[in-house]
């Protein structure tokens, strides 16, 4: 795969497969196997904000959790700066935790209710034994200012329940940023917040990138949020990568019927009559194919039964660094309409 060879890759996922086994109805029986991620490969370049877009159950959160080692893949490898993560131990592992951080979805759940804001943000510094008490205070104060918790004096002694949702998420961002990490996974950081507060968080994330040169993986269900924040966007569906390209490519010239359906579904601010519709979604789902076909076959209007239900389309480069997994994506033609 050759993509943007001029920039360094920071995180690489290589043919990642992750399965979950649901518990069976009776004790000891094994339930269904659910494939959360199906041979996903992603290269995230240094300094970019990479958007991973998908619906609930698409496996987007799982991908983020795999990168921060909260979970282990069944197959495939993950590299940080060219070094494989799986075998890390001892000092190397600790070093890894210093470089890779995560911002969680729900700020009401991701802060320890029994720790003050200062204790929460300074904890990573304590874990990694960085600096003395005074240095840590400096770092905490600095980070709090940069995420807009200012003046810090007003917040350090508070507990999570004394903060609003937006403030909590800022504390969570500060905790992730205080170690000056290279890479941060932001897992739907605004899905629990009001729209007006979300914009504050988006702007903080953009600022973080500029200030600390941190690379971000932004996981979201919202294409419009991804468009605002991200340089490149990957769209995944049921654990399969459907489309990958620059934010402009994916949103202005979507190639995959699923991406098009997502764009169609977004509210249009009352302008739905005036905006172009792709109409790639079947109003009623058809029978899913029994073969290893295209994962989107059951809902795709463009699909050709003879082909799409029997064979899985591979991710192919259609034009400059724009990858699509669809047989009918070439040159943006809309065959099958």
């Amino acid at each position: 795969m050759k993509m943007n060879n001029d920039r360094e890759t920071i995180i690489e996922l290589e043919h990642i497969v992750k399965k979950y086994t649901s518990r069976g109805f009776f004790f000891g029986t094994r339930g269904n196997e659910i494939i959360a991620l199906n041979k996903i490969s992603i290269k995230i370049l240094k300094g970019e904000i990479f958007g991973l877009v998908g619906e609930s159950g698409s496996g987007k959160t799982t991908a983020g959790r795999l990168i921060v080692r909260l979970e282990k893949p069944e197959e495939g490898r993950i590299y940080l700066n060219g070094r494989e993560m799986a075998g890390l131990k001892g000092k190397a592992l600790k070093n890894f935790h210093r470089k890779v951080q995560m911002i969680f979805q729900d700020p009401y759940q991701s802060l320890n209710p029994q720790l003050s804001v200062f204790d929460t943000i300074s904890e990573p510094l304590v874990i990694h034994k960085i600096g003395n008490t005074e240095d840590r205070e400096d770092a905490v104060w600095q980070t709090m200012k940069s995420v807009g918790l200012s003046p810090p004096d007003d917040f350090v002694n508070r507990y999570p329940h004394q903060l609003s949702g937006g403030q909590r998420q800022r504390v969570a961002i500060a905790r992730a940023m205080v170690l000056n990490p290279d890479f941060v996974v932001a897992d739907e950081p605004t899905s629990m917040l009001d729209a007006s507060i979300s914009a504050q968080i988006f702007n903080i994330l953009i600022e973080m990138r500029e200030k600390f040169q941190v690379t971000l993986l932004f996981i979201t269900h919202s294409l419009s949020a991804a468009r605002y924040l991200c340089d490149r966007i990957a769209v995944i569906y049921k654990g399969n990568m459907m489309e990958l390209g620059s934010a402009d490519q994916v949103i202005q010239k979507p190639r995959h019927p699923y991406t098009k359906a997502l764009i169609d579904a977004l509210p249009k601010f009352g302008l739905s009559g005036k905006v172009k519709h792709y109409n790639t979604l079947l109003p009623v789902e058809r029978e899913a194919s029994e073969h290893e076909g295209c994962p989107f076959f059951a809902r795709c209007r463009v699909a050709n039964k003879a082909k799409c239900s029997l064979e899985r389309p591979l991710l192919k480069e259609t034009d400059d660094s724009h990858w699509v997994a669809c047989f009918y994506a070439e040159n943006g033609t809309e065959k099958g309409f």
Partner: peptide, 26 residues
């Protein structure tokens, strides 16, 4: 399995630390 425990794990906290610093106060 609460996210704040996972956040501590991501930050590299040891099991002892998680038990005493995060679970015990709760």
């Amino acid at each position: 399995h609460r996210p704040f425990i996972e956040a501590a794990r991501v930050a590299g906290a040891s099991h002892t630390r998680i038990i005493f610093r995060h679970i015990m106060p709760n």
